[in-house]
Nucleic acid binder design. Structure first.
Lengths: 195, 195
DNA sequence: ATTTTTGTACCAAACGGTCAGTTTGTTTAA
DNA sequence: TTAAACAAACTGACCGTTTGGTACAAAAAT
């Protein structure tokens, strides 16, 4: 942090502040002047650091992606592979509660808002989802894992479904503002991988 | 259809055409002039039928909601309660393939785009999700249903998770444009309810 | 006859983006 | 040591376009 040049600090400040606005309001419902107001950075300076609104949005997504995978690997902790996966899901859901179910998941939001109309965004989102699935798969495929659905379902398929369930659960809790939606999804995920 | 008055026909035409645009582009990325171009209806006429853009969006959502629950009850067919649920999920996923994974689910899209910034929208969305869950619950709670997770998970919790998984699966397939994402989610859902 | 429906012209505000120019920080050279 | 030179960082006025929305007269339907 201390070794950051002035410009880098400004850029990072824009990135982090804009991320908070985007996750709450979405891309198309966020204007450049919203970002200017929130960051305190003047318009000219904003366009000095980022070529366009799209460019800024993409940079925010990339920045969040890197942070997420650090968070993911830290959250995958526990006594068994199954426990790791369950704890990770729980950690992700816990973040939603912290935000009072406002905003949800930046990647999920961007997926539904941008994936059909902007290939640059969907490319990043594809990486996020596939890497996330791969990471869960890596643990679920480990030796000694015995889950109740194992007979019918491969670890990769299960991993993918877990990601889908997490995103869907976040979506539902965002509408209902109800912690129970996340708890229920977590219970089923735990039942699936834990047996 | 034939008994519709002219104004009703116009209104319905606006509703259906706008729905197609909204599901593809989202609410905030769709302008009034986009709608005018697509429908052929002139601006003054549009604002005769709908008080505002929000009012139109809400009406589209309501219209889609009614249609969805007709579709849902028709899709819940099969020899056993489990088969009904599985067939229904399959029918929903099949619709996504028809659209080449473009647009996804109008309700899911609106949930992530509008639920935090517009209470009128989130009210409708809450009804959609809770009624959908209730409908699945009704079948899963029927006698003779024996699912592999039954020991740990109540029918209602399972129903909720299925809806979350469907929405998450649609989200992922929209990004990847890959049928496999839906197939995989369906396989896990089938494994969960079917044993 | 009068209510419902439609077409056209128009508006202020907000939009994303540009640009000429100022300030600040860092090298280089005398 | 200082001053010139260069680049990086920043400012705010300004641009053309698009936005959601209104006014109102003409036309059609009842």
């Amino acid at each position: 942090m201390a070794e950051m040049k002035k410009g880098e600090k400004t850029r990072d400040h824009i990135l982090k502040t804009t991320r908070a606005i985007l996750v709450a309001n979405g891309f198309h419902n966020t204007s450049i002047s919203d970002i200017i107001k929130a960051t305190g950075v003047k318009k000219g300076n904003l366009y000095y650091h980022f070529a366009s609104k799209e460019d800024l949005g993409l940079a925010v997504l990339q920045d969040a992606k890197e942070e997420f995978f650090k968070f993911l690997s830290q959250s995958l902790q526990g006594d068994s592979p199954c426990a790791k996966v369950i704890n990770s899901c729980q950690a992700i859901f816990a973040e939603q509660g912290k935000n009072n179910f406002v905003g949800g998941c930046l990647f999920g939001n961007a997926a539904l808002e941008m994936s059909d109309c902007n290939p640059h965004f969907s490319e990043v989102l594809q990486e996020v989802f596939s890497s996330w699935v791969a990471e869960l798969d890596r643990h679920l495929a480990a030796d000694g894992v015995d889950c109740s659905l194992r007979g019918n379902v491969s670890p990769r398929v299960l991993a993918k479904t877990i990601v889908a369930t997490i995103e869907g659960g976040i979506m539902m809790s965002r509408v209902s503002k109800d912690q129970a939606d996340l708890d229920d999804c977590l219970a089923v995920i735990a039942a699936m991988v834990g047996g």
